[in-house]
């Protein structure tokens, strides 16, 4: 062919090799965007998701000290519930809103009932609005930590224990916590163990 001499061939190969490496790197970068996004969201509360706190890790004593400092401040927390893809469950908060002091540990309950004739495994997904409040909304106990299995017709009251961090920006006086129940079969999602892995990877990436 007329592509020229050997040195030309070599430099063509060199350029091609280099560019192929770039292609592979960028392909991986596409996937890396997932944990990067997760980390960013957690750091800045971008999509209203919580900071995950494992049970008992939260220092309740320290939180109670903050209560004193913030006695003059109150925050209204609203609760709401949704079901994804018309999941045939009754699902609602048992209190629609509570007023709390920052640092105070509160417990509220959600009620859920499986209206279908079959056993349903569902995952509750929390979301907080405004988004920047998400990282100051810490849950100590939550039914969203694990998948919930409901037998046909089964009803449960599910507790949620939470603390609003005293560092919550001053201009936020009301925040809303929304839960959406997804049927794991319908959503075709990973097991909780896999979800945890993803979250941990994201956490480490941060």
């Amino acid at each position: 062919m007329s592509t020229g001499n050997n040195s030309q061939l070599e430099s063509n190969q060199r350029v091609t090799r280099f560019l192929l490496v770039v292609v592979v790197v960028m392909f991986c970068f596409g996937f890396a965007l997932a944990p990067m996004y997760e980390a960013l969201c957690k750091a800045f509360g971008i999509n209203g998701r919580f900071v995950e706190i494992e049970q008992g890790v939260y220092d309740a004593d320290k939180a109670m000290q903050q209560v004193k400092a913030d006695r003059d401040r109150q925050v209204t927390v609203q609760f709401t519930a949704s079901r994804n893809q018309n999941l045939q469950w009754e699902f609602r908060p048992m209190e629609t809103s509570v007023v709390v002091y920052p640092g105070e540990v509160r417990e509220v309950k959600y009620y859920a009932k499986n209206l279908t004739g079959k056993t349903v495994v569902a995952q509750a997904v929390p979301s907080v609005s405004p988004g920047q409040a998400a990282k100051y909304f810490n849950k100590i106990e939550c039914f969203c930590f694990t998948q919930q299995t409901f037998k046909p017709g089964e009803a449960k009251e599910m507790p949620l224990r939470f603390v609003v961090d005293g560092k919550l920006p001053k201009k936020i006086s009301t925040l809303t916590l929304a839960y959406t129940f997804f049927d794991t079969d319908q959503a075709g999602t990973k097991s909780k163990a896999q979800v945890d892995t993803v979250l941990r990877v994201a956490h480490n990436a941060k």
Partner: peptide, 25 residues
């Protein structure tokens, strides 16, 4: 390649139970 990554994630979400783009997982 980033587009290829995006559609690959779609593919695994659709068929192999990952949930890159689903809040449920």
């Amino acid at each position: 390649p980033v587009l290829a990554g995006a559609v690959t994630m779609m593919l695994t979400d659709r068929n192999f139970g990952t949930s890159f783009f689903s809040a449920a997982g």
